[in-house]
């Protein structure tokens, strides 16, 4: 005759948490492969405009970033509220843009140096005068491929 152990009443079996690390590791690896490291923290307000005819910027290793916008609130006391240029982690003048491009270009490997794109991340409230000055500097150092980075969306929303 088989013997059955009678379950004690009101005693739920504990849920095994042994597979919890595996699940978390899975999440971890997902994020490690899908994301990229932030290279610099933003010191300027950067609400990009919208555009619908966008092209994706593939291959992050051949892109140089220039940020333009009003300084964020904590920097406004020192730098004022006029739109400024941010290169890497510091504010810069228009005249420094050319040197920055040359420096960054020298850091890249030989075969990438001719295919670099300059991504302009400009706040939509900035004035075109500053952008025109940057474009002139870029032309001086022969960095002719530019990408006006935008959000994907209806371009007419920029006007409001």
């Amino acid at each position: 005759m088989a013997k059955f152990n009678k379950k004690k009443d009101g005693d739920l079996p504990a849920v095994s948490t042994a597979s919890l690390p595996d699940i978390v590791f899975m999440l971890l690896f997902f994020f490690m492969t899908v994301t990229v490291m932030k290279d610099s923290s933003l010191m300027v307000q950067n609400t990009l405009p919208n555009a619908s005819e966008v092209k994706k910027l593939e291959k992050k290793d051949r892109v140089l970033y220039i940020y333009v916008g009003k300084p964020t609130r904590e920097y406004q006391k020192v730098f004022g509220t006029e739109p400024k240029i941010q290169l890497n982690d510091k504010f810069a003048n228009v005249s420094e843009v050319g040197d920055f491009i040359l420096q960054e270009r020298a850091k890249k490997s030989q075969e990438l140096q001719n295919v670099l794109t300059t991504a302009l991340k400009v706040d939509k409230d900035a004035n075109m005068g500053l952008i025109a000055d940057i474009k002139l500097e870029l032309r001086k150092v022969n960095a002719l491929k530019v990408n006006y980075t935008t959000y994907e969306g209806d371009a007419f929303r920029n006007l409001q």
């Binding site: 999440l27 971890l28 994020f31 966008v54 910027l57 022969n142 960095a143 990408n147 006006y148 980075t149």
Partner: peptide
């Protein structure tokens, strides 16, 4: 593992940039 996960969540970005490609005149 959670600690590592949170570290990666904070320090990385997921977006790929998109925008209008233009060539400047030489």
């Amino acid at each position: 593992a959670f600690l590592l996960l949170i570290f990666f969540l904070v320090t990385t970005t997921i977006e790929t940039d998109a925008g209008l490609d233009r060539m400047l005149p030489p």
